[in-house]
Design a protein around this nucleic acid. Structure first.
Lengths: 213, 213
DNA sequence: TAGATTGTTAATCGATTAACAATC
DNA sequence: TAGATTGTTAATCGATTAACAATC
């Protein structure tokens, strides 16, 4: 079965298309075009058509794309026509914010359980979750159908947690700790470090606009 | 003055180099090599040497790079050899977590003031900040030397907030709302939407490992 | 029909990699 | 010195764009 290899860059854009289409659908837009989508996302129309062509033919010449239909197709392609359970490790300030974040539920993800290694926190109730001890990750995760781990622990602890998650069978990790994780191939990691994004911008901002505190 | 144009992709990697070098420095590593850095970050040694070559010659043949020196150089290049003041808009759960996040201070950023549009929150104390009304953004930001805005409001409100920030002279926006922002050219936006990263991973996870709740 | 927009191919552009002389 | 690693050039690879026939 000669699968067409989809470039990573294309996969990275699909969630943006999905998000834009969901937005349009909520606004009541029934039909859109590669041009409209492109304007909305700051991309080129040709790129959007090319990206979509990896997966099929979803449009109609002269008309464009049916918003609801394309949204449904992308939902399937990204495997978010189902719900994904996630294990959150770290019940600190960030972990708490993640537990309260409504955006997961709306878009196909939910936190199934919360771990922490702090004896002060273990057993405590956090937003309806009983905090489980981190050293039970390997026991708890497998029989709960969890395939995604979210790391919200301090940088020093993150690598060890990542390995525990991998041992528990986790295949995808969303890492909020500001450190590069080493994981076996086959395990996907996505990193969210706000300072990395800020530093990308300050490069371009130059050393002007002084704000010495 | 014929500036050498640095590709965006290169700029995007510089903060990762800086983070890795800071880490090494804390660990007491005095010297490193393009090979070691590459292994650490999952890149190729040639790419790291090429990236650095846009900015100068920082290494020594046969030896590698002095960790402290390269870290200091990258810090300057990224303009984080100073402190950047940020305005946070949105004092909800996410805003609160951002206010408490220690990682900003450590790496050259700090939140200078917090805005919200909810009358319930305006005037209240949030982690030492008195919440200011969003409609005073244009007044408050200019005379505080703030050049970065952080948006942590619901998606519906994000675009309007972005425009307010731009009017106040903000040139860089870190956007946590799950929506693409339209801003004038010259204003940089970086988007952090965890679900976008999760969906990238679920594409590869396939539709296996059922976890229907 | 005339106008619009797709899907796709070929051309362009840019980024990554390989290789190696320079040199510590 | 011998071994190692840089900085840089040229070659390769891949992604984006332009263009257009197909067709709604």
């Amino acid at each position: 079965m000669a699968e067409i290899q989809v470039p990573d860059m294309v996969v990275a854009r699909l969630p943006l298309y999905l998000r834009a289409l969901s937005h349009m659908e909520r606004e009541g837009t029934a039909v859109t075009s590669s041009h409209e989508l492109a304007t909305h996302l700051g991309l080129s129309p040709a790129q959007i058509r090319k990206d979509l062509s990896y997966f099929g033919r979803f449009g109609k010449q002269g008309t464009g794309y049916d918003v609801a239909n394309l949204r449904a197709r992308l939902t399937k392609i990204l495997n978010v026509d189902r719900t994904w359970a996630m294990a959150l490790v770290g019940a600190g300030a960030l972990g708490l914010a993640l537990v309260h974040y409504g955006g997961f539920q709306e878009r196909g993800f939910y936190i199934a359980c919360v771990f922490d290694s702090d004896p002060e926190k273990i057993g405590r109730d956090v937003a309806g979750y009983t905090v489980l001890p981190s050293d039970t990750i390997a026991e708890e995760i497998p029989h709960r159908g969890i395939s995604i781990g979210v790391i919200a622990v301090p940088a020093e602890a993150a690598q060890a947690v990542a390995l525990q998650l991998v041992e528990a069978g986790i295949k995808a990790i969303l890492n909020y700790a500001p450190i590069s994780l080493a994981v076996p191939s086959g395990v996907r990691v996505q990193q969210i470090d706000p300072v990395v994004y800020l530093q990308q911008m300050t490069f371009y901002l130059g050393s002007g606009s002084a704000s010495q505190a």
